[in-house]
Amino acid sequence: MLEQSMLLKDHLLKLYSQNAFVTLLKMEILTLDTRLAKLSMPVLADMHTNLYQTAHGGALASLADTAMGMACATTGKKVVTLDMNLNYIRAAECPAALTAVGTVIHDGSRTMVAEADIVDSDGNLIVKARGTFFVTGTFL
């Protein structure tokens, strides 16, 4: 069982490191554990910001969605997002280093529910997200 868990983790690390969208937004995987994914993303002026030079809501949504989807994937299930809700709590000033922690809160056979918190380097909550994911298959 431990060997299969390591194979899955290695597979996910390779899969996400080759994903063009994850690479474009400069997301990095910090931690992968069963039902948990921790990612980082910078807020760069020429890439991630809105008119006010704070993190664009779309970039934050992408980070949250990726963290939740990866948390689901650590269970060995392939998922796609059905629904996602985000509460934008405060602005992330540029430049900033953000961390997203995605956790699975429901692991069903057909659907999964996950949450993500995005915080800045001072630990301030930037975004609280929740998503429902449809299980399309399994990895490995």
Score class of each variant (00 low, 15 high):
V104W: 01
T99H: 00
A55W: 01
T66V: 15
A92E: 03
N87H: 09
D65T: 09
Y52I: 11
N87R: 09
T81M: 07
G102Y: 03
T103F: 01
G58W: 07
T103N: 05
A55F: 02
A97R: 03
L86K: 03
A59E: 02
C72Y: 06
I89M: 08
M70L: 15
I105Y: 06
G102K: 01
T54R: 04
K78T: 14
I105T: 14
A59N: 07
T81E: 08
K77H: 13
E93L: 01
Y88I: 03
D83N: 12
A92R: 00
A59R: 02
G102A: 10
A96Y: 00
A67H: 05
V79T: 15
N50K: 15
L82H: 10
Y88P: 10
V79F: 09
T81S: 11
V80T: 15
G102W: 01
I105A: 05
G58Y: 07
I105Q: 09
R90L: 04
G102F: 02
G76N: 06
T81Q: 03
D65P: 09
R90K: 08
E93C: 00
T99M: 04
A67R: 03
M68Y: 10
A71K: 05
L82P: 14
T75R: 11
Q53L: 07
E93A: 00
N87A: 10
S62R: 07
C94L: 02
S62A: 15
G58S: 12
T74Q: 08
A91E: 02
C72L: 11
S62I: 08
M70T: 07
L51D: 15
N87K: 07
L51S: 15
M70F: 07
M84T: 08
V80A: 12
L51G: 15
Y88V: 05
G102Q: 02
L51T: 10
G69D: 10
L86G: 10
T99V: 04
I105H: 05
D65A: 07
A73T: 05
Y52Q: 15
G102R: 01
A73D: 12
T75N: 11
P95G: 04
T75D: 06
D83L: 02
L82E: 12
K78W: 10
L51C: 15
L98Q: 00
Q53N: 13
K77D: 11
V101K: 02
A64N: 08
K77Y: 10
A73R: 03
Y52R: 14
T99L: 01
T74I: 08
G57N: 11
L51P: 15
T66P: 15
A67C: 12
V79H: 08
A64W: 02
P95F: 02
A59H: 05
